[in-house]
Design a protein around this nucleic acid. Sequence first.
DNA 1: GAGCAGGGTTACGCCTCCTT
DNA 2: AAGGAGGCGTAACCCTGCTC
Length: 295
Amino acid sequence: MTLSDIPLPKVPMSPIVLPIIPEGPEWVYQLKWDGVRTLARLDGKGSVELFSKRLELKNEVFPEIISLLEPLRIGPCLLDGEIVYFDGNRPNFQRGKLMGRSRYNNENLIYVLFDLLHADGTDLRGLTLRERFERLSAKFSEPQKRLFVSELYTDGHALWDWVNEKGWEGVVSKRLDSPYSAGKHHEDWFKKRKEIRLVANVVGLKRNNGVIASLVLSYEGRYIGHVSGLDQASKSLLTQFAEQHPGDCPFEKLTPGMLKSDVLWLGAPFPCRVAALEFTDGGILRQPRLLGFGH
DNA sequence: GAGCAGGGTTACGCCTCCTT
DNA sequence: AAGGAGGCGTAACCCTGCTC
């Protein structure tokens, strides 16, 4: 059995965003670990391959995870999970420098497992989550501090409350009798993410080749990043507003990227509602989403 | 068969943060 | 300074099924 004998999925199964947590005996719930989705292929003899969501080989990027997996003697298998920077309390996507990282050694990096796609020569994707999870758990019956299976919970709302109290990223709901599907072609995995909502001020319009591409946001007098996702109507509305209220840059200091971009500054604040995952350590909104204009 | 609606898939643009 | 990666949303496209 060599690594290439274990087939990779076309694309990992991906939870679909849903604003509610589905309820019923067929559902189980897991913490959403905030990190980088990673598949691990093991030949059972010490060879390991890590793959990103796009199935790019990531062995060079996560040597410490390779080290965790190499000594395992659990047979040839394909694992699915999340590489997470975990300080013992809460995943931290920022501090883990997980984005764009090339080579880095960090003992706070862990690998949290939640699925088993292939084991001992058998494709398990057609089995139910219940069965796959059982087999996964059996392989990791002795959890390590940095390598363990993500726990299943039966009370989704209690988990959601806990997530909000502790500041975790969200809850993933999974159907117990569901197979492992590619991508989002299913109705079996859903995620509900915790997000912050705030009313920020649009203080500038960033233009690319003359057309509005994103909005420069200010909150409590401070620059908090850009938000995109504008439709044509919003662009017209904002262009009109900008023409009526020309102004200057309200910030003393600009990011290097903004210095060279073409920004049309507004002379009067234009309130807008924004949702985001959180503020980054640098005070920038992470994954901002425009909800609408006004208060 | 033409036209439309809806769903699904793909392509692209955007942001941020990292490496080169 | 420039480019790439990861992630998300939107636009564009395509396919299917329905109606006329």
